[in-house]
Design a binder for these strands. Structure first.
Length: 602
RNA sequence: GGGGCGGUAGCUCAGUCGGUCAGAGCAGAGGACUCAUAAUCCUUGGGUCGUGGGUUCGAGCCCCACCCGCCCUACCA
């Protein structure tokens, strides 16, 4: 048994999230975390909403509200979506809490004290009316190379040349059209070159483990070949104050959103421990070199998790070429695994909230079962390459695999049990065919477990469904529905007992993927209580009112997962009542394809 | 410009160290069965493995070039 940190990417709170987001980080991390708990590991699964940065400010301005108000609204929406999906966070918090501010500032101070944050003067654009940094991508102008009128500050979409915003002719703010002002400004830069060797050693070791997805490790190793210092502060009035004398008081200088966002994994772990009343407990996951950590995200976040965050940690630990000492949090663990998903497209095009080419998680869950979405994401998600979500494929997979394959097995088994015995009967002598199917199903714990433990979810759920198919075959071969004569009563009881055991075991195999329906199947076959613990929303009070963005209370996702069932066969209880079942999964009418496509057209 | 990923049966995709690797699921066709949300089970797949070279006794799998699609390039997973 190991300490396992499940570090899940922090959804950005500039709006509600779409199903591509939860396909990238949410569902895969939950399946993995639930499996690891079942396998006996001590899992700490944390995340939260990422609420700082320019995009939130821009969205807030557009909506006529403050950044805090916008973040509050979207945090609430996102929390609801994630709970509805059944994502089993130990703590899902936010980056505007006093605790987060405090932890981020300690990290920054530690990195600064060790000499890895260097002050530099840079030349950057600000908005004259607000005094805020204008990020390159928010500046438009005429391309000096090809004359394209709507070139972006970082790159011209027409000729593809990389640009510097100062190169643009007639530069203008994409936000309000005004002409940006280019000023000299002071910022702190993370000295990545001084950490390059340490990063090289770290990533080299990770590469040697052979467990990272090839594109992630290759991409990361490529990045560290050419490291430059990177700004960790911004001219912006929405973010975490720089915790140094002379800077703290400057309301227009804040920490770069990505400096603080990745620290969230640590701050959320600490918040979790504090709320537990055991404030040092987080150290089991962060200071023990034997503890494992798995970070889940979409591919556009790889650099922050495989390079920037390890660099921050190495700098805090004092492990770069400038040396140094760890601060009050001690020597912190670097990521064991960076598990990155690719992109999920929809109907062959990239999701685009602004263009309305999007399926929001909340909309999806208002019309379909959460486990139907979870099944689709696990079976056809963007695990190692981009994957296309289409409504016709969603309907097909739901109906032919979830409903016809698994749901039907549960239904036919429970129906025969209810009709013939009204309970789980005791088995008589087992025949070879019975022994074989029981062994086949039990072998699934090894094969499925091995795949899920290596984050091979597509292969894992396919293997579980293969086992389901074997059990369907068992019923076809043994033909219990033909055993109507009293002389066959004992054989009937035996077959149905075996079938019930197989269904219960399949349910356990599928439980990490389909926790909601696992509880329904459990109950349908006479199981008592809840099988898979589910998360809940709890409103909590701010722990550090002297810091943070001024929250008083806020919603978090949490849960007690200590009753998670173990990853093994759980014997059925003879005599457990089985009533005529109601179908677990809803079959979808093919017309939903057209309906949903029509929704997209709007 | 630089970097990455993908191009395998109608569709969605597996193919780890090069030698039963030419596969699975779905769709389609035929059959069996009726407990089950007409669900299940069995049988049925000859696709230049993007193109052209090369290395090798042997290459989807390695190398080179090219074509096509997608993505990243540091503030939208």
């Amino acid at each position: 048994m190991s300490k396992v940190l499940s570090a899940v990417a922090w959804p950005y709170a500039n709006g509600p999230r779409h199903i591509g987001h939860v396909a990238g980080f949410g569902v895969p991390s939950d399946v993995f975390s639930r499996y690891m708990r079942m396998a006996g590991h001590d899992v700490l699964m944390v995340s939260g909403t990422d609420e700082h940065g320019t995009p939130i400010l821009v969205a807030a301005d557009a909506a006529g509200v403050t950044a805090r108000e916008l973040a509050d609204t979207n945090n609430a929406l996102i929390v609801q979506d994630l709970v509805d999906l059944g994502l089993s966070y130990d703590l899902f918090t936010r980056t505007t809490t006093g605790n987060h501010y405090r932890v981020v500032q300690e990290l920054f101070r530690g990195v600064h004290a060790n000499g890895y944050l260097v002050e530099q003067t840079t030349y950057g654009a600000i908005s004259p009316s607000t005094g805020r940094t204008l990020p390159d991508r928010y500046i438009e102008g005429t391309c000096p190379i090809c004359g394209y009128a709507d070139a972006r500050g970082d790159q011209c979409d027409n000729c593809g040349n990389q640009l510097d915003p100062t190169d643009l002719l007639d530069p203008r703010s994409k936000i309000n059209g005004e002409t940006p002002e280019f000023i000299e400004t002071q910022h702190f830069f993370l000295d990545l070159p001084a950490l390059a060797q340490a990063l090289q050693d770290y990533l080299g070791g990770r590469e040697a483990s052979g467990t990272w997805r090839p594109n992630v490790i290759k991409f990361s190793l490529n990045l560290i070949e050419d490291l430059k210092p990177r700004a960790m502060t911004r001219d912006i009035d929405w973010g975490i104050p720089v915790p140094l004398d002379g800077w703290r008081e400057q309301s227009a200088k804040r920490l770069y959103v990505w400096f603080d966002a990745v620290v969230g994994y640590l701050s959320a772990s600490i918040e979790w421990a504090r709320r537990l009343g055991d404030p040092e407990r987080w150290r089991d996951w962060w200071n023990d070199p034997e503890a494992l950590s798995y970070y889940f995200m979409g591919k556009d976040n790889i650099v922050f998790h495989s390079v920037i965050w390890p660099a921050e940690l190495l700098a805090y630990n004092g492990a770069g070429e400038r040396g140094g000492e760890a601060g009050e949090y001690g020597t912190l663990n670097l990521p064991t695994e960076v598990v990155s998903s690719e992109y999920m497209t929809m109907e062959s095009k990239q999701f685009s909230t602004s263009r309305g080419h999007v399926i929001l998680v909340g909309d999806m869950l208002s019309r379909y079962q959460p486990d139907a979405l979870r099944y689709y994401i696990c079976a056809a998600g963007p695990e190692t390459s981009d994957a296309d979500f289409t409504w016709s494929d969603f309907v097909l997979r739901t109906n032919s695999e979830l409903v016809a394959g698994w749901g039907n097995l549960v239904n036919r088994t429970a129906t025969m049990l209810a009709k013939n015995f009204g309970e789980i009967p005791a088995a008589g002598a087992l025949e070879p065919v019975d022994e074989t199917i029981l062994a086949t199903v039990r072998a699934g714990f090894d094969s499925v477990g091995d795949l899920v433990g290596r984050q091979r979810l597509r292969a894992g759920i396919a293997e579980a469904m293969r086992v389901v198919g074997e059990v369907n075959k068992y019923l076809t071969v043994t033909e219990p529905y033909k055993m109507k004569d009293e002389s066959q009563r004992e054989r009937l009881a035996t077959v149905l007992h075996v079938a019930a055991q197989c269904v219960v075991d399949c349910n356990t195999l599928l439980a990490p993927f389909l926790p909601h329906s696992a509880n329904l199947v459990h109950a349908a076959l006479g199981g008592e209580g809840e099988f898979m613990p589910m998360p809940r929303i709890e409103t909590v009070e701010e722990l550090d009112t002297d810091n943070g963005a001024g929250l008083a209370t806020y919603p978090v996702i949490t849960g007690d997962y200590s009753a998670t069932p173990s990853w093994q066969s759980h014997p059925v209880r003879v005599g457990a009542p089985v009533a005529k079942p109601t179908p677990i999964f809803t079959k979808l009418d093919p017309s939903v394809v057209e309906e949903e496509l029509a929704r997209l057209e709007k």
